[in-house]
């Protein structure tokens, strides 16, 4: 039901460490925000787009993934032509395009497990300070993916319960019952986690 946006492949980006790729986005992003040069932004946008579209993703899928973001960028760009100046609008639009294409390329070339490893590593300082335990993040993420389908099942169940009693089903009115159905398992799940000694170490 929930498929990762990772795309199988063996490109240069696939082979880089996730931490390096995230740092790349950060550095490029910061660099582009300190300059107002149209040429720099244009070159960056073209290179980022070239990287993204050269990945082994079918072109339509590649566009489809970014459609909502590209749409927002386009609308804001058009508004800014009128509010600011065509030059300024173009600079900010190209900058956003560059960062977004680059980010999408990193997402498509990094596995969830590799991201998680990097996150666990990045959380080490916070763990030493006692703010958060890296293992808990993995646990929480696993729990979400484990119980998502159960919540959809609860939702379908509520729908059928309404139908069986001849009551019109309003999705948003079912929110309260859906949330209660989901959260009332929390005690039992927490007990089970403790019983298995999962947070022991």
């Amino acid at each position: 039901m929930l498929t990762s946006l990772y795309v199988e492949g063996d490109t240069f980006l696939h082979r880089q460490r996730p931490g390096a790729k995230l740092a790349l986005i950060l550095v490029v992003g910061l660099a582009l925000y300190v300059t107002e040069s149209l040429t720099v932004q244009a070159v960056a946008a073209v290179i980022a787009a070239a990287i993204y579209f050269s990945l082994p993703i079918p072109f339509r899928e590649a566009i489809y993934r970014l459609k909502p973001v590209l749409f927002t960028i386009a609308v804001l760009g058009l508004i800014n032509i009128w509010l600011l100046s065509p030059h300024e609008a173009l600079v900010s639009t190209l900058r956003l395009l560059a960062v977004v294409f680059l980010a999408a390329a990193v997402t498509a070339t990094t596995r969830i497990a590799d991201f998680m490893e990097t996150i666990t590593w990045a959380l080490q300082p916070a763990e030493k300070l006692g703010i958060v335990r890296a293992a808990d993040v993995g646990l929480a993420l696993g729990l979400v993916l484990r119980f998502l389908p159960d919540i959809f099942a609860h939702y379908e169940g509520l729908k059928h319960a309404h139908a069986a009693r001849g009551i019109a089903f309003r999705p948003l009115r079912a929110l309260g019952p859906l949330i209660i159905l989901t959260l009332k398992d929390a005690d039992a799940i927490a007990d089970a986690i403790d019983a298995r000694g999962i947070r022991g170490r």
Partner: peptide, 26 residues
């Protein structure tokens, strides 16, 4: 946690959006 899922490439936002591009967009 939801944002973390978006960041690691799970399309969990409405309309099936996800990935770092959403977190870098306007």
């Amino acid at each position: 946690l939801v944002i973390l899922m978006v960041a690691i490439g799970l399309p969990v936002l409405s309309g099936g959006r996800g990935g770092l591009s959403v977190l870098m967009g306007p």
